[in-house]
Design a binder for these strands. Structure first.
Lengths: 196, 196
DNA sequence: AAGCTTTATGCAACTAGTTGCAGAACCGGT
DNA sequence: ACCGGTTCTGCAACTAGTTGCATAAAGCTT
């Protein structure tokens, strides 16, 4: 139940149309709460009919016509309420870790390439975050809002740093394994599931 | 599309009934791929009708009666296929970071308590992981399967370490902010959304 | 043996997120 | 003025995950 609040936040930062929101989700907000344009349009409709946002009155709002929204007081209040409320963390889901665990049972064949690809992706993301930090948070700018936003960015940077390190380590480990066993570790499951 | 593979992995490690699987998901597998008993029962049915697993023939399988499953060769093959195949990482979703960003706009009121609660949860999880490491990976045990499983556990430990550190830092930062502004930073949105 | 609790399996309905497609305006070039 | 690509909005159908409840057997209690 966070998408509407992600949208409210984005709209408070700057009133936007559906597509503008989509683009901003692809850049900044989407780094920790991604959404497709479909979700966004649907949610905008819902938020409007709930009276939390409204379409800025401009040109006639026809199909294929840009339509910008702004947050109403009720929307700001709802966002404040949600921000203050406690929430339990969502259960984790990480397919890569799961695959590593599966590899312990069925063998590591084919894993290396994908680990490398992930490493590359995380390196890129890290570089992007660092670029943003350089651009948006030069030493000096540190009003309350900046400090909070910087904190969030730091989480992103540190997370990507963690993943690049871990993936590099994992890659070395997996490479070591396939070297020893000649391509696949325990691909017959011996040692874990004894043949019956 | 990872749940069936999580189940196959778990069943290869040890044939189990639905409830046993559920419990094991709550402990080890669920740390990086959680699932409710509902998902598991449904998926077991699907996997069985697809011929990837089968019910161990034992007592008559009536309702309210334990029914254990084991993986068939086709299931092992499917798991190996999936493990080897490359997959794009799922888009990130982190409600806490989102809330911090919202707080930059609507104020930090009420955040501190919840940050503290999250810190506590992550500390507990970290302690649990470290306990598992002590118990299951004493120095010496390092066959191929152990190395891979240990690698996964290390990811968990390092992630939780990261979060506890970051949360402690965030908590200090937020406390500093509310001290300066008297409880809420920029709760009227000034500075970000100039009043029109 | 009658009732209560726990264990185990499962159905049905719902919410959130994804994918594929389509239609209207707008913006160039010819 | 017409055509073709791009922008912008949106519907419909699907997949994955969650919540609430039902039902059957087994074990314990009196």
């Amino acid at each position: 139940m966070s998408l509407p609040h992600a949208i409210l936040t984005a709209l408070l930062e700057k009133p936007s149309s559906g597509l503008e929101l989509t683009r901003r989700f692809d850049r900044s907000i989407g780094y920790f709460w991604s959404a497709t344009h479909q979700q966004i349009y649907r949610e905008l409709g819902k938020l409007e009919s709930d009276g939390l946002i409204r379409a800025l009155p401009s040109e006639q709002p026809a199909r294929g016509q840009k339509k910008a929204y702004e947050v109403l007081p009720a929307g700001r209040a709802e966002l404040a309420r949600w921000t203050a409320a406690g929430q339990d963390p969502k259960p984790q889901r990480d397919a890569l870790l799961l695959r590593l665990r599966a590899a312990a049972v069925v063998g590591t064949a084919g894993l290396e390439a994908d680990l490398g690809r992930h490493l590359d992706l995380h390196r890129r993301q890290l570089a992007e975050y660092e670029e943003i930090e350089r651009r948006d948070f030069p030493p000096g700018r540190d009003g309350p809002e900046d400090r909070l936003r910087h904190l969030v960015l730091r989480a992103g940077i540190d997370l990507e740093t963690f993943w690049t390190r871990w993936l590099a380590h994992a890659l070395a480990e997996v490479a070591g394994l396939s070297e020893v066993t000649g391509g696949t570790a325990s691909s017959d499951g011996a040692g874990t599931t004894p043949p019956r």
